[in-house]
Simulated scan of single mutants.
Amino acid sequence: MWRLILLLLLWPALALAGGQREEPLSASVRAVMQKSVSDTAAPRLMFKSETEAYAWLTEMSHRLQTRIPDKEFRLSFLKTVHYEATRAGLDPQLVLGLIQVESGFGKYAVSSVGARGFMQVMPFWVNQIGTPEQNLFHLRINLRYGCTILRYYLDIEKGDLYRALGRYNGSLGQAEYPNMVVGAWRRYWAYRAL
């Protein structure tokens, strides 16, 4: 009984991420990924106009309000998601769907296999492409890594989103995880610009 109570108390902090598999990277891929995660440019919204940016932020903030109640943090989170996703050539709404499935928007979520933060990044990535002082619970670092890794998987899977998501989760060849991410993306985060 006490184990069930402990599990229920810890449930929000536990994530259901699978285990990304550590694979050797070629020197050129490692260099590109290292450059990507080491960039220190400040996040900024990347829209055609301020009106478009305001509309997106307002809509996404409203949708995220129950999951991240603190308005200031929620807006910072959304700006960072939008910047990092766009920078990596990803749809920001897809990234929101992935975060929903991976961590339930838990900044300090840790999976049973050790993946960390919003995007459930495995610690081996810091050794492969980062530096020891990079904290995977830091908002920007976590999103930077997660978007860089998903972009890498999309590239090696030649744009096949389902296979890339399977790699991201460590469940390549299984439909459940990619279907959950795409479902969350379409059901909760799909957005059409003005």
Rank of each mutant, 00 (worst) to 15 (best):
V37Y: 06
P92E: 12
S38W: 02
K79G: 03
S112Y: 14
A53R: 11
F124E: 10
T86L: 00
E102Y: 02
T86R: 14
A115T: 07
P24E: 14
V32F: 02
E22F: 05
R67F: 13
S38M: 09
G104I: 05
V126R: 15
S112Q: 11
L57H: 01
V32K: 09
A115Y: 00
L96W: 11
W56H: 05
Y108S: 06
L75G: 02
H62S: 14
K71M: 05
G117Y: 04
G104L: 08
V110F: 00
G117D: 07
S38V: 01
G106H: 11
M122S: 00
F124W: 13
E22Q: 15
G89L: 09
Y54I: 05
I129D: 05
A55W: 05
E84L: 08
A115F: 02
V95Q: 05
V113S: 14
E84A: 04
E23L: 12
E23A: 13
Q93V: 10
Q100H: 15
M60D: 00
V81W: 01
Q93A: 12
F118P: 02
P123C: 14
M33H: 04
V110D: 00
E50L: 13
A88K: 06
M122A: 04
T51S: 07
R44Y: 08
V37R: 12
P69E: 07
F105V: 08
S112R: 15
E84S: 04
S103R: 07
S112H: 15
R63M: 02
L98C: 12
N127T: 13
Y108P: 00
V29G: 06
E50S: 14
T40W: 03
E59P: 01
A109I: 01
E50N: 13
V121D: 06
W56M: 09
F118R: 01
L78T: 02
K48F: 00
Y54H: 12
L96R: 10
T80Q: 04
Q65M: 08
A27L: 13
F47A: 06
K71R: 15
T66V: 10
M122T: 01
Q100S: 15
S26F: 05
A88L: 08
L57I: 09
G97I: 10
L98H: 05
